Amino acid sequence: MNASRPAVALSRPHLARRLLAEFLGTALLVTIVVGSGIAAASLSPDDVGLQLLENSLATALGLAVLILMFGPVSGAHFNPVVTLVDWMIGARAAAGLPLRDVGPYIAAQVLGGSAGAVLANVMFELPSQLSSTDRVTGGHLVAEVVATGGLVLLIFSLARTSQGSVTAAAVGAYIGAAYWFTSSTSFANPAVTVARVFSDTFAGIAPGSVPPFILMQLLGGALGLALVLVLYPTAARAADDVVVPHSVDAKL
C-alpha cells in the first residue's frame, strides 16, 4: 500500500484548482453558518433553542453537500486544523498534503471564510461589521478542544475507508450534533472562527474571543492527532484521502 502513495500524490489536481475549491468551499460553509443564523434569528426571534436547531440543521446538511461538491478537487479540508494534521500525519509515510501547500491552503480557507461572512451579510442586507459577541468562558474553551479533537479523530479514522459519501454524511452529522453537545456550539475551525468576526449577528464572535478559541482548536487538533496515531497506527497511509479522496482521473 505504501508503494502506491507517491503515484497518488503526483496525480493531485493542480494547486490552483485545489486552492479555488478550498476558497469556495470555506466561503460557502461560512455563508451557510452565518446566513442560516441570521434567518433563524429573524424567523424565531423569541426562541433561542429553535434558532440553534435551524442553524445546526442547515450547517450539518450544507457541510455534507460541500464536502461532496469540492472534495474530489481539494479533499474538502475547509479547516486549517485539518490541513495541519493532514500534513503532520502524512509526513510519516510520505503521503498527505506536502508542506509547501499548507500555507496556501490555510490562506485560501481564511480568505474564503471571510468572504462568505460578507456574502451572507449582503444577502440579508446587513452591514459587515465586527461582532460584539464575547464567547470566552472556561466552558467554551474546553468545548472547543473537545469539538475539534473529535472532528479530527472522525475525519482521519474515516479516511481509511476511502468512502467519500460516508465521510461527508458523518462529518456533517458530527458538526450538527456538536452544536448541541458543546457549550461553544462547536466552531472547531480557525478559518470559520476568524470569518465569524465579520458578522455582528447570532453566529458572530467578538475579535477578542478569537485568539483563545483558535488556541484551543489547535490543542484539540493535537489531541485528535494523538488519538488517531494510538488507535489507528497505519492512518498515515490514508493521508492522501483526507477529507475525501481527491486524485485526478479522466473525469477531472
Rank of each mutant, 00 (worst) to 15 (best):
R196E: 06
D86H: 14
D47Y: 02
F23M: 08
Y174N: 02
L158D: 06
G220L: 02
V8L: 15
A9N: 07
T31H: 12
S184N: 00
A195M: 01
V171W: 11
V82T: 11
L252N: 09
G75F: 00
S4F: 01
L219Q: 03
T185N: 13
V102Y: 00
G176F: 00
H77D: 03
V248L: 14
Q129M: 11
L154H: 07
P104Y: 12
A27Q: 01
V243Q: 09
A120H: 11
V145I: 15
L61Q: 04
L66I: 11
L28I: 15
S184I: 01
P211T: 10
V197N: 05
V248G: 12
P98N: 12
P207S: 11
L68I: 06
Y105F: 15
T133C: 00
V194G: 06
V8C: 01
V34D: 09
V242P: 06
D101P: 02
S132G: 14
V166N: 02
I38A: 04
A143I: 00
S128G: 10
A236L: 03
V73Y: 15
A58Y: 14
A41C: 08
D241R: 06
L24I: 10
G113N: 07
Y105P: 05
L19D: 04
A169S: 07
D46R: 07
V82N: 08
A222L: 15
N121Y: 03
G138W: 09
G149C: 07
V152G: 02
L126D: 09
A191G: 01
L229R: 14
S56C: 07
P233T: 15
L223C: 13
L252C: 09
F198A: 12
S42G: 09
F70N: 08
A95Q: 07
I89H: 04
S209H: 02
Q51V: 13
S44M: 13
V242L: 04
V102S: 08
L24K: 05
G224F: 12
V197T: 15
G37A: 10
A9C: 05
T137N: 00
L61K: 01
L153C: 05
V34Y: 06
S128L: 02
V48L: 12
A168T: 07
A178C: 09
A203Q: 01
K251Q: 12
G208T: 14
Q129N: 13
S132W: 02
L57R: 04
N55Q: 03
A117I: 05
G172E: 06
D47R: 13
S131D: 04
V166S: 03
